[in-house]
Design a protein around this nucleic acid. Structure first.
Length: 498
RNA sequence: GGCCCUAUCGUCUAAUGGUUAGGACGCCGCCCUCUCACGGCGGUAAUCGGGGUUCGAAUCCCCGUAGGGUCACCA
């Protein structure tokens, strides 16, 4: 990965969410890219909580985010719960460090106090807007004499602190994904790094942390690219060495706008609740903005670690496509061992009272059989659980369209005849059941589907599912007979004549 | 608006100066079949526009256009 003759420092990357909500899929992808990069280079993945905004940050959100990472299988080497040599890993606990760094910058005259009031600044901004010119900080406090500063400080004025930015020249961001990006310094201004309430701004806290945590590669979302020249200037001022940057493209909604609630699920936990598998989500996210180069799309986590390469990350934003995620998820649902599938959905099944921990070997084997039959057309865990209902619970209601189509009055008799015919089926296994049904179809003089489809609907309430004879074998003789008769009764009740 | 980034099928993307522009999702058709799926086979569909450079451009350069980002004592 590292080119040039650059001295090989061991890789340290970080993901620094601000705990003001749940983990967004965009954030999850960025974190995953960081994690892949760390793992493939035997580096360190740091998780840091950017909670400088005390008002909006919540502990519940921190826990939620950590839980999402655990679920995704993204583990961190340093950070909350695990600690590490560069802690603490919450910005709210690092104020002394920020103060110390600020004082250093002030002592070196790389930063200075600014006494302009927010009102004054806002007025200037508005004025600039009105005139249609670019607003930049006037630099009023830039050249205050030491005595004046001291005097105003002594008077109890609470200043902000600004970084001294060169008025001329160009700041270049070397980006691993985009190449060199140049920004004219006269387009920047002396930006605020320390607020009047004695807390650092995001830019300052973030750079101090990255510097002091010895982060070697900052892999983050594209939206930060415009801020990066400021960060470069800060890193230079701080003097801990310059990390490498890699700005990954954003994830957009189908209408090319920023992904938001109105576009459906945006957080990792929502996908979990919808029965999406973490490995599928992570696989999908990998493919959104990265391509392996060959035509392989379903990749294990280990393969992903092997092939991930920042140079193969795309430069343009990607539109998020639920359909493909669903397809990807189905791939995983269908290919996992049935016992693993059962393990994943067990809590759900237990909550519905469909399974018990002390089930007999026999009923467990039966459950495995039914699960496997349903698994091959499973779309998600939730879908598999739903598909299991007719076998573990009963028929709560019949599919409406199916009812109209298959539960015609002539069918009632047919189902009852079938129920009786099943009496002699021994053993009650698929081929024998099928023989019985084929005979019956002959005798009734109907087409196969005219008996088969109503039967499936009567037995499962659904018009789709595994092969009918297997369904019957799974349900067993008496359940089949009961359900056939119940359906016949219902048809008669709802359509007395005709 | 200034600055910055980006631009290949509807969507995710491959092709880093020479390909009938490839794959995947979706969609459509056919096969399998008791249904729905699965699976198999086939199809639909793209280089934003205009100028250059070059024997040759999706690819390099310029200009448009479009989308996105960013310009806070938010992160």
């Amino acid at each position: 990965m590292t080119k040039d003759g650059e001295t090989q420092r061991s890789v340290r990357v970080r993901f620094a969410p601000s705990p003001t909500g749940s983990l967004h899929i965009g954030g999850a992808r960025t974190a995953y890219f960081n994690w892949l990069f760390a793992r493939q280079s035997q580096g360190v993945f740091v998780l840091r909580i950017d909670d400088t905004d005390q008002r909006r940050s919540t502990e519940a959100s921190v826990q939620q985010i950590l839980e999402s990472f655990r679920w995704l299988g993204i583990d961190w080497d340093e950070g909350p719960n695990v600690g590490g040599p560069y802690g603490p890993y919450r910005q709210s606990q690092r104020t002394d460090i920020y103060k110390e760094e600020l004082q250093r910058l002030v002592a070196q005259d790389k930063a200075y106090p600014c006494f302009c009031s927010p009102e004054q600044l806002a007025a200037e901004r508005e004025e600039a807007q009105r005139l249609g010119v670019v607003h930049r900080y006037s630099g009023r406090c830039r050249h205050l004499s030491v005595t004046e500063r001291e005097a105003r400080l002594a008077r109890g004025e609470r200043p902000v602190y600004r970084l001294r930015v060169p008025e001329q020249g160009v700041t270049t961001v070397h980006d691993l994904i985009r190449g060199d990006v140049e920004f004219r310094n006269d387009g920047l201004d002396d930006f605020i790094i320390w607020k009047a309430d004695e807390t650092p701004t995001y830019h300052f806290a973030s750079c101090v942390d990255d510097a002091r945590m010895r982060i070697t590669h900052i892999i983050r979302a594209d939206e930060h690219l415009s801020n990066t020249p400021r960060h470069v200037l800060l890193f230079e001022a701080l003097g801990y060495g310059m990390p490498q940057f890699a700005h990954v493209p954003m994830i957009l909604a189908p209408d090319r706008s920023k992904l938001s609630k109105r576009h459906g699920a945006t957080s990792v936990e929502e996908y979990r609740d919808q029965g999406i598998l973490p490995e599928a989500l992570v696989n999908y996210l990998l493919l959104l903005g990265f391509s392996p180069g060959d035509d392989q799309e379903v990749l294990t986590r280990d393969q992903a670690v092997q092939i991930f390469d920042l140079y193969r990350v795309t430069k343009h934003a990607a539109i998020y496509d639920v359909k493909k995620l669903e397809w990807m998820n189905a791939q995983y649902v269908r290919s996992m061992p049935t016992d693993v599938l059962l393990d994943r959905i067990w809590p759900d099944l237990a909550a519905r009272g469909w399974v018990r921990v002390d089930m007999t070997r026999e009923s467990l084997a039966w459950l495995r059989w039914v699960a496997a039959a349903v698994q091959v057309r499973g779309l998600s865990l939730a879908h598999v659980v739903d598909s299991l209902a007719p076998y573990l619970d009963g028929v709560a209601r019949y599919d409406e369209k199916g009812k109209k189509k298959h539960f015609t009055s002539a069918v009632a008799d047919r189902l009852e005849v079938a129920a009786s015919a099943l009496e002699s089926v021994e053993p009650f296994i698929a081929p024998v059941v099928e023989r019985c049904y084929r005979d019956l179809i002959q005798r009734l003089g109907v087409k196969g589907g005219e008996l088969i489809h109503p039967t499936r609907l009567a037995l499962t309430g659904q018009t789709v599912g595994p092969g009918l004879f297997e369904v019957m074998a799974m349900l067993g003789k008496s359940a089949c007979q009961e359900r056939l008769r119940a359906a016949a009764a219902l048809i008669r009740a709802e359509a007395p004549q005709a």
